[in-house]
Design a protein around this nucleic acid. Sequence first.
DNA 1: GAGAGTGTTGTAAC
DNA 2: GGTTACAACACTCT
Length: 281
Amino acid sequence: MPELPEVETIKRKLSSLIIGKKIIGLEVLKEKSFHGDVSHIIGQEIVGVQRRAKILQLVLRDELRLLAHLKMTGQLIYVDEKRKIGGGHPSADWINDLPSKHTRVIIHLSGDATLFFNDMRIFGWLKLVSENSVKNEFKNYGPDINDPNLDSKYLQKKLAKKRIPIKQALMMNEIVAGLGNIYVCDALNLSCIDPFRPAQSLSFEEIEKVLDASRIVIQRGIESGGATINDYVHVDGLAGNYQNQVLVYGRTGEKCKNCGGEIKKSKIAGRGTYFCEGCQI
DNA sequence: GAGAGTGTTGTAAC
DNA sequence: GGTTACAACACTCT
């Protein structure tokens, strides 16, 4: 499930592969997966790749942008003549079988390259919008969690009236964008904060701690190319690496890397929540 | 083999 | 206004 580090990783890899290429064809295999007028995108040159929150943006000529939200099971896989053999990695053999039954949109690029948008559960989408309406897409978003301008004072103000658990509050895009279930569990473990605590009950020092910790785990995630838990793969079809260094996510019954306590699993707002009963409760 | 679980986000209902 | 529940969906696990 792609969170900010996963989308950031895709952005970086994609930048080096598709900037300067032209979109010469587009096949929508699943109507729900593509919003916008297909005809407007044909012939457009890709001039940049950006990311805001968990949304990927292909910047096109003529003041157009193709936004992509992978939600939980989305994948963007880039294939060209050189990459048809999965880079020599046996685990990526399936790359030769694209399009798969989960391919929803196929983007044909100049230079005999193809971008496949796969999405098993069809929650994700591609959306073609004008440069002007991009702002509108993000009007309900707070700053990215790794935005250097985000400070603990802002966070304190946002959390002051929230009685919901801190874990749930940190996952709200209108407060901070980009934190998903995996990284928020890890950030709370790293800062030794009980995920069930009402958001407004945190002291300023604790808010600083949790913000620092969030940035650290997000940074680790980016450096290790994201986490491949179930569905996320890189644009080259290979797996990320963060899952090998998660602090608590999915480690029920194992030992906390911080204090050696046992990791428990519970539920907050319907989502699996992992925490250490030793140092967080 | 039926049922629950999986997680992002918008929306509707409380 | 804050909070909760659920739908959107397909596949895996119990």
